[in-house]
Design a binder for these strands. Sequence first.
DNA 1: TGACAATATTGGAACGTTCCAAATAAATGA
DNA 2: TCATTTATTTGGAACGTTCCAATATTGTCA
Lengths: 349, 349
Amino acid sequence: MIKARVTVIDIAKAAGVSKSTVSLVLQGSSLVNEGTRSKVNAVMRELGYVYNRGAANLRQAGAKSRIIGVVVNDLTNSFFAELAVGVDMVVQSAGFVQFLSNTGESIDRQREVVASMREHGISGLIVSPARATDAADFKPLVAAGIPVVVVVRNLPGAKVSSIVSDNRAGMMAAVEHLVGLGHKRIAFLGGFPDTAVFDDRLAGYRNGIEAAGLGYDEDLVISSAPSRAGGVEAIGKAIALGRRPTAAVCFNDAVAFGVCDGLRARRLEPGADFAVVGFDDVIEAQAAVPALTTVSVDPQGIGRRGAQMLLKQINAGKAEAETVTTAVRLVVRESCGAGKAAPARAGRA
Amino acid sequence: MIKARVTVIDIAKAAGVSKSTVSLVLQGSSLVNEGTRSKVNAVMRELGYVYNRGAANLRQAGAKSRIIGVVVNDLTNSFFAELAVGVDMVVQSAGFVQFLSNTGESIDRQREVVASMREHGISGLIVSPARATDAADFKPLVAAGIPVVVVVRNLPGAKVSSIVSDNRAGMMAAVEHLVGLGHKRIAFLGGFPDTAVFDDRLAGYRNGIEAAGLGYDEDLVISSAPSRAGGVEAIGKAIALGRRPTAAVCFNDAVAFGVCDGLRARRLEPGADFAVVGFDDVIEAQAAVPALTTVSVDPQGIGRRGAQMLLKQINAGKAEAETVTTAVRLVVRESCGAGKAAPARAGRA
DNA sequence: TGACAATATTGGAACGTTCCAAATAAATGA
DNA sequence: TCATTTATTTGGAACGTTCCAATATTGTCA
């Protein structure tokens, strides 16, 4: 068991040059002679040299650790897994690596992992914050000059960049579609009212309802946990209403699936007897029976976009916070009752 | 914009002690006086000190970076996302952080991320290898004394620890169950024959068939991509067979879902007209219609277990490779036609 | 040939920590 | 009081890189 690490000095000695030259080669400097370069490279390969980024970072004063921190609130939700994959794609091809952690909606955990990432000298952070995250939590990071991009859930008041989907427009489109199908009583089901995302989606719903000349009726807004179970609960309450709705837009796809479950438990067929529209377009949406009509937000795209934005800020050294909202589009499938769509499509590449 | 990093020396100066003492405090040494300790801690808080792990690792000769590398082959598959979450749980609570990367089944990518992780000085690696990974790929890691644990897919020939689920027993149980329901012609659908996992599952199928006194018939083994699309394809071929099977065990749940799709496209109802059993028990399995009878492998459990094993090896300094196969259990739901089970249960905590 | 530029190479001195051996201070025993 | 523990504290010297300023080497032009 030879534990001795091979260092740049070993290489230098073996190649008959100075450590400085080896360092130059490492950084692909054009200053070094072609012959020398290839010799050094050969020796490196031969001795099995592995670059010590820690040491390098030390010298480079925290500038470029080439580590990007990624924090998501629920990795078991495929929406966020996709997001992480999107980030990974661009981060990776830019020669960075991804430090990914899952907070499971715990803000304590979030604090921990962010602190830990900071200790490791991340050069930027992408975060989908846990519920009830304090906007001030990322203050120290940006004060230290570490770019932060908030995705999916925005943090009103925090002076960081953010990318959120156009929740309002998406929900409005969903309502319009249902109105176009002849529905007059459309409920808004699921979600916790204490989040910015909820507010946006609800606002879109309200806009859509009012634009259609239907009266906005508070009774038709039924919040619940943003989960499958929450959906079951919400549809239960909706059906118990005096003037029962004939359609619902849901806070997200998980809720929508729950709503479908709840409908079937009451011998109502989603799509045929009651129209259901989700939000997010998670992978399962197109495969479900009935296939879910939903608002597609392309989490992978958000991830890619967020990563690009972050990299831009890292390279720029200093960047002011920008906020983008990404377009969404309604994907009409079966659960809204708009007729059996063409046979389901294609896998993922 | 004051970029000056606060270092241990700044703290020392401000607290009127030496840097060595500050270092002692940092490591929670019992050598330092209680009064001094609290003073130092106070100053640290005041100046907003952040520990520089890079510098520490440098000195500690790569021993304890407290970084665990996690490499999965497909993060968009919830099976692996769950796995990562399981790892994260134990890794996190042991005070380590997780470096997670997705290879998307690309062995080039895998090589890249592993190299990158090594440069960052990970103290251990958990990997669910991409298809066709060369067992020698992890040789340098273990030679350098970095423990590696392979999960889910084993790497015959590699001298590393591994945790795989008991594929053989699981498939055998599935076959036995179908036999118990009266099926005589049971197909094995999906999966690529070039993987160890495929071999194991097929062996389990064969054992089950022969144990039941049914003849093993090669025609009933139809491989395909281990995906939903592959499932559609496989069931198509199965139905075209002369003596058509009446049931199938599938390579994994994705294939099983595809098989259900394919059945329905031919006006056959999975569960009623043809029995389908999957493998993995992905989250969607219990929510699907019909709920999928499948072999549950608890990816989160494997993740936790793998992480524990890895930590043990890290702490032990040197550990020989051990191999565990984790138990699996058949979860009977609807798709096998064993009668409507009790109403589906409960979410995830 | 000498002066100058261009091209390659190089020895320290950092970077922020931990470790070691040694120093200091305080407490104990005789 | 002095020697001897015991409890704290402390300066360097690493660790493996990068950066800087300086040096060697070569080539070019007059």
